[in-house]
Design a protein around this nucleic acid. Sequence first.
DNA 1: TCTGGGGTCCTAGGACCC
DNA 2: TCTGGGGTCCTAGGACCC
Length: 434
Amino acid sequence: MAPGGGATILHADLDAYYASVEQLLDPSLRGRPVAVGGGVVLAASYEARACGVVAGMPGWRARRLCPGLVTVGGHFAEYQRLAERVVEVLRSFTPVVERVSIDEAFLDVAGARRLFGPPARIAASLRRRVRDQVGLPISVGVARTKHLAKIASQVAKPDGLVVVEPDEEGRFLAPLPVGLVWGVGPATRARLAASGIDTIGQLATTPSVFLERALGQAVAGTLTSLAANVDPRGVAPGRSARSVGAQAALGRRIPSTELVWTTVGYLADRVAGRLRDAGQAGRTVTVRVRFADLRSCTRAVTVPRPVSATRTLAELATVAVHEVLEARPAERVVTLLGVSVGNLVPEKTLQLSLPFTGDVPGGGPATDPGGRLGARRWGSDRAVDAVRARFGRGSVGYARVILGHEGGVPEAFRELAERPVGGGAQRVRSPGAG
DNA sequence: TCTGGGGTCCTAGGACCC
DNA sequence: TCTGGGGTCCTAGGACCC
């Protein structure tokens, strides 16, 4: 909703979050290039970014780019704890806080003006209090819409504040690169550049018919509403997840029957466990297989009854992975397997029937004509869930030895990145390059 | 010496039904 | 003999975001 009055939407974004926490915890890291993660860079400090280090980059390449780079394993529990303290600071200004990830949130301070003054002053004191009380740098953008506030906070980084007053919007946006627009990534940017469009100002003078043909209806719509300063999205708590998935990079591996069954078993265990915790089950199972050239192939299957049993999910996913492999006989190695469940519905009852019968490669026979096995599976899953609830997720589970190769990501990092399923809880995701 | 993990949404085409 | 249009569901791939 485009507010009738002034700029009251704030976008608050912690700078290089994981790396900043590391520099807070260990003062000797301050001012130095820091990368969180070993095999792959999960986050980089601004000093590291200055040498070209970015999230997602292989560790060896980051160290080559940046000889003084300090690599740390990561204090994932601290990331969670400190982010909660930052959110407490935000909520001390207004209850209207929408968290979009672990390090990022929108606020609408329209109702807080009488108490705390104009939005620009609120933003400044918010930044000061996060710095004083938590010790972290945070950038804030202030504008009339979420989209514009987000662009403003990107411009403000690092450790800055940018306020876009309503009568300055056009002048503010015009010189900015199109890549700052939400939904415009590398591919769209390249396509626009091919037409000579590099700035948001140039976009504004481009016929919408052209944009729609070149970019599709959805992205063109985003651009149009930005240009018109209309943003249909108000500040509100996030929706719950619509799918739950897990994936594991494997290095280069021959996809033996055993490797597939074991890896998919581990992934299905994670996914189904999270589904059951949330009282959800899903009808569509999607697997992803990535090959040596990093291109991936997906296969989806939709079954009549929602799935949340670990074994059932593992069987469906294993069969799907083998179908992909059979469709690509030329591929000799796989580099990643993924399992995801969508079409979620609240789980009502036991899953008494299996979607198919027959042998599962690596998993033995899955024949269950009477459906009794389904009930037993439900019971044993529940038993595992109960032990985990008491003693933690690592207390029972699939052997993860297969994932012990170099470059695997810590379990705690996976958990940080999980979005809560069901219940309309806060959305918490991992920070990006920011 | 090769590239993490969690998600969302869009698009296009096909099957199927009325 | 030839042929309509709309709607829904599903699948595969891809772009994008954090």
